[in-house]
């Protein structure tokens, strides 16, 4: 399949391409062309595209075990980076724009809500990048010599989508009518997109990363 056809069939894959360092302007290149050029496992690339395109898509057990955990973690790290540097900073800019043009000083509090939320997201990602991912990358070396296991992560994996819904509701329903509708719509669209992406991202962590590592742990213990 041609890369261009992928994007034309689901434009949301644009953000996925970004995370695989695939730049636009690829002409007629196919999935396999680009995968060998960028050293991506084609099956993994296709898996990610499927997850982003179909709400309930999950790999079967055999395909799950074929995933290289390092490649998956690499993708998740890139996604975190994208969320923080792109999605959240764009949302912040739009929120500032909105606040600037509204007199209501309550908007300062809205900004505070956002900043607190971003802290939460950063903490969430830092835990994964500093504790969970290194554990997985070294799992073969560590073997029994660690108290950590993936179920600790599973139990502690917090939900960072809910507060976005709160923010959406406040902006849709409760900011006064005097606040620019246009600026609100721009911000809302970004919030919706970001939330969709977060949901997919958590699905990858919960339905793919955790089961995969859990299987690997079983083999180590055998």
């Amino acid at each position: 399949m041609k890369l261009s056809d992928l994007i034309l069939s689901n434009y949301k894959l644009l953000s996925v391409f970004n995370r695989f360092d695939i730049n636009l302007g690829f002409g007629e290149k196919t999935i396999f062309d680009i995968c060998s050029q960028k050293q991506i496992t084609p099956e993994f690339f296709i898996l990610v595209c499927n997850i982003y395109s179909f709400e309930d898509y999950l790999p079967n057990n055999k395909n799950l075990l074929d995933i290289n955990p390092k490649e998956l973690i690499n993708f998740l790290r890139k996604t975190h980076y994208y969320f923080l540097k792109e999605s959240l900073s764009e949302i912040e800019n739009d929120l500032d724009e909105l606040c600037e043009h509204c007199e209501d000083n309550h908007l300062v509090i809205l900004k505070k809500f956002f900043i607190d939320y971003r802290k939460e997201v950063i903490n969430h990602f830092e835990y994964e990048e500093n504790i969970v991912f290194p554990y997985i990358e070294n799992i073969n070396k560590l073997g029994f010599n660690t108290d950590y296991n993936i179920h600790i992560f599973e139990d502690n994996h917090s939900n960072i989508e809910d507060k976005l819904s709160d923010l959406k509701n406040i902006i849709i329903k409760y900011l006064p009518e005097t606040c620019s509708s246009k600026k609100r719509s721009i911000l809302l669209e970004k919030l919706f997109c970001f939330q969709d992406e977060l949901i997919i991202h958590s699905r990858i962590e919960e339905k793919i990363l955790i089961p995969l590592v859990s299987e690997i742990e079983k083999h180590i213990n055998d």
Binding site: F113, D162, K163, S165, D166, N169
Partner: peptide
């Protein structure tokens, strides 16, 4: 309200 968090 559609709002769950205390801060919201």
């Amino acid at each position: 309200t559609g709002i769950k968090s205390v801060s919201g």
